[in-house]
Design a protein around this nucleic acid. Sequence first.
RNA 1: UCCUCGGUAGCUCAACGGUAGAGCAUUCGGCUGUUAACCGAAGGGUUGUAGGUUCGAAUCCUACCCGGGGAGCCA
Length: 435
Amino acid sequence: MTGFVDIAKIIDGKKDNEQVNVRGWLWNSRSSGGILFLMIRDGTGILQCTVNKRNVDEANYNKLEKLTQESSLEVSGIVKKDQRALNGYELSVNNLGTVYIAQPDFPIAKKDHGLEFLMDNRHLWIRDPKLMNIFRIRSKFMESARKYFWENEYTEIQSPSFQTGACEGGSTLFEVKYFERKGVYLSQSWQLYAEAMMSSVGKIFTLAPSFRAEPSRTRRHLSEFWHLECEEPWSNLNNINETGDRLVCYIAHKLANEMPREVKNAGRDPNELLKLKPPFPKITYDEAVEIVQKSGTEMNWGDDFGWQQEEPLTKEFETPFWVRGFPTGIKPFYHMPDPARPEVTLSSDLLAPEGYGEIIGGGQRVHDYDQLVQRIINDGFIPEDYGWYTDLRKWGTVPHSGFGLGVERVLCWMLKLEHIRDAIPFPRDMRRVYP
RNA sequence: UCCUCGGUAGCUCAACGGUAGAGCAUUCGGCUGUUAACCGAAGGGUUGUAGGUUCGAAUCCUACCCGGGGAGCCA
């Protein structure tokens, strides 16, 4: 058998009444006397393949009738529109190609399972059509993110995963023991290296994993997440917010326009993504504190948003919105204090609506040497430990800005997912590194 | 790290101090339009681990292991 058709093409209605070959894995099968219903998935979708005893020879019929779940097979037949079939189209099978019989004990039954069991069998659970659908959208997400930056003449850069300094607070570092020098950690962000590379090639971005050893076990946290970060020379807070607006809208529109069926199946109406338009609303940190206090939740000026503070805030908006000007004390040293008001920084977080919360964090960086050294000291670090980083301000410093976006968090919001673990094939947290 | 809930057949659960049970899955048989198909039969157990209380423990107590949800913090 040669020349196979993607199931996605069939259920999009592009092969109606044609004789085609399909190959994939048997998701489920049912029989009723002389008629067999095979649900075949091929990575692009699921197709009901109907086998009538009268249309195939007896040997093939018997073979198909005995197929175990997850057996892989090639079939050919005629595509027919049929409302009784899942997805509206079915294949009326008339021939059978290669078959690989699976063992009869596939663990993931056509039945409810507990999360512990499913996570222990994540390597098989990812075949689930719901998950498969999300991972295909995730791929489009990565493609769109890169396309946005490429089209806007950013250079893609890779930074090291082994680093010697903290840039997001020391308690969340993963220490790596292999190196002869002490104090080597997995990257939490490309931030410090980005600022170095920026002075080489200008506007840059990266798409890479970041590691946070936060003992957090919530539906919004991963120990290893994919980080989309960018850094721009000659850029201030307003400029970088604009980049964030346009990037997020670009990705949202790409997903909605190029994978509407998949986005809908994941749980989000594509039209809601198409409605997003830059710029997103902006409020100050001070205003955000007032909104939270008015909602009856406790919060003092100077506190960071916990989940309890963030949730009432995100319910006020229907699109993502920026919170700008966080207090100097709660942002890392590389954030630039506002010259007009040094108690706050030129920083901003983008919060997604519907309770999804923070998806981007960034802002304008400190470009003055003395100010940076003072900020490092104030954060309780030793400037000598950041020697190469402070060097950057000695030669050719320039106002610059950047941000980091959590890929899985944005996917969660855009696809209306309930848990961040579904946005990544093999999620990691402190209780889960296998499989 | 802390709080909280849980661990019984391959899976989902019941039994809550007195002989360990059901549905699904698996195997076999039946059914020509099924949608987690349905109907009939069969096989399937050291109740997470280690101690303790008791005539008797899946059940009560202690410790540990594993996991779900959440908090602080973050993308």
